[in-house]
Design a binder for these strands. Structure first.
Lengths: 337, 337
DNA sequence: CTGAAAGCGCTTACAG
DNA sequence: CTGAAAGCGCTTACAG
């Protein structure tokens, strides 16, 4: 059953059926004709072929959600939050969602247009965009492709981007700690050579120290090789062995914080009595850690939703150029600090 | 840049370029010609338009993952596991993945073909398939559309289905409990009028009782209105008030079990010392509940993976008819029983 | 209000 | 080994 069959059975031209199918043009069709077409369409359960419509209209009405290819993606609270927001955002829209997974070994895309063409989508949301050097380069320079990045903001990026500032989150943590009277504050840093976030969080920590009057000094700074619980555990172990512990430690993410707490517990150092611990990212499990972890939450769902709304504006030419949306992180105070 | 531009610039016909693009037919093209085309394609970063290919080939090389439209989907460990498996399964394949979200208020699809056409996909994986009465009906009768259901198996289903048997999981629970010497075993049931799973788990519980020699009697059976922690909590409260508690309780899912434990704790009844508790589904949080919850795990990732592999066989006509894959649940013994 | 015809960007028998 | 032409199922000026 295609549009020609319907036209034939109704005794009209395909153009008329096509108009009937388009809500914008439906009332160009005479009421009587509309009824006839309607009857036939229902009778045969006809529905238009979206692929043909897409080719003809030169728009797929589909957006692509780009992630690395890894089953872990859905298990990360970070992606979960964003995806939940994307689902919410796309719900009321007439767009479809394609999940584009990019594996490292893939030949590198040289060009965002290629991704659009090769996957039949009109725009892209990058849940994480440092996927390959070519792509990073593209994103820094292109503004003519509808694409929205999420987080990992840097001023040189020319694409549209939705992000949550590290700087502001770190400031909130530091002022919370100082207001509680902590003066000797250390940091368990993330892997700086890998992650922009790690660098930014440390840099914000330093400037907060200056502003709020606590000293940021080497014996109170340890860097972890990865953003994971185990790395936090090992590094904290080391720190405990060296001795000279501060009164409070800001950990560059929750995983590190949880690992650190485990290491401290093993050495009979109590959190928060002997030492206060703060994390970053606010994973759901922070509520059930022991003690529950104070952390900073990014409004992931709102960000995911904003990303699709922004992208759709770009795709539909309702907006153009690079749109930058900044979100505020929120301090969630629990028992660890 | 389209195939005609490339053909013109290379000085060959579009047919030749098209052959060059098709790995199957590439060597029909003379080596010399191949080189010329290759050069031009690279120069202009040409890549074929997938929509046009799809229309022409009459296949989209895309499968649809069907879920209800709700942000909660990604937050459920059940869907997470399945989706992780689907990602894993689709990784090595040349198929794209479209996420088709169906909202209740939608006009009901009368026909699986409609979903395929309206979303440009070749086949469907239903993560949950009791989405509307029409669809349920379709699924019971159709075998001519590539579609794979996951769980909620019933013999009357004619579609392909990947499932994990409730019966076998419940048996494992009951034999674990009897082997530990429990004789007075009760059940916190799920909402039977809503869920096939709830009915099956109870029915399996009854027959296990017969086989293994424990009595299944009314005062030890309570039904919860929903499959949620709060429902488990409230119902267990009630049970405690009525008195007459068994030595062990099988809860129809983990949420109910966790709620029940909370209610028991509040009444100073210790788990597992005073009463043993078993859940079902094995959510990741079972490891960190207090006490860690004994439960039954479905191999969700393997099931998701099998679903896409099966679907792709169906789509590519490598297989046909209804394929039924049964998976075995696994008992995970922790401290609660 | 309606229809004939060109076009979207590919693929694929068919002929050479 | 290559090309001309029809076809996939729609949409959309254009003409009436």
């Amino acid at each position: 059953m295609n549009i020609r069959d319907i036209a034939k059975k109704t005794g009209v031209s395909v153009a008329t059926v096509s108009r009937f199918l388009d809500p914008q043009k439906k009332d160009l069709v005479r009421a009587e004709t509309r009824e006839k077409i309607d009857r036939i369409i229902r009778k045969y359960h006809y529905s238009p072929n979206r692929t043909a419509q897409a080719l003809s209209r030169q728009i797929n009405n589909t957006i692509g959600m780009v992630t690395p290819l890894s089953p872990d993606v859905v298990k990360s609270p970070y992606f979960e939050g964003l995806i939940a927001g994307i689902i919410e955002g796309i719900g009321p829209l007439a767009y479809d969602l394609k999940w584009i997974m990019i594996r490292n070994e893939d030949r590198e895309y040289c060009n965002l247009h290629e991704i659009l063409r090769e996957h039949s989508v009109d725009g892209l949301i990058f849940l994480t965009w440092r996927l390959s050097t070519n792509l990073v380069d593209e994103v820094q320079h292109r503004t003519d492709v509808p694409a929205v990045l999420i987080n990992d903001y840097s001023p040189s990026v020319r694409c549209s981007i939705v992000y949550c500032e590290n700087r502001s989150g770190v400031k909130k943590i530091c002022s919370h700690l100082t207001s509680k009277g902590y003066k000797r504050i250390g940091m368990l840093k993330g892997p700086e050579y890998i992650s922009l976030d790690a660098r930014e969080r440390f840099s914000a920590f330093k400037s907060s120290g200056k502003k709020m009057g606590f000293r940021v000094r080497d014996p109170f700074l340890y860097e972890c090789p990865r953003f994971e619980e185990e790395a936090g555990y090992q590094t904290m172990k080391l720190w405990v062995d060296k001795g000279n512990l501060p009164d409070a430690i800001f950990c560059a993410n929750d995983g590190l914080a949880i690992g650190a707490i485990r290491a401290l517990n093993e050495s009979k150092i109590k959190v928060p009595k002997d030492i206060a611990i703060v994390g970053y990212d606010d994973s759901p499990r922070n509520e059930t850690t022991n003690p529950p972890l104070t952390s900073v939450r990014q409004p992931l769902e709102a960000m995911g939703k904003a990303a699709v709304e922004t992208l759709v504006k770009l795709v539909s030419k309702e907006a153009k150029g690079a749109i930058r949306l900044k979100f505020e992180p929120e301090l969630i105070v629990r028992e660890s600090a």
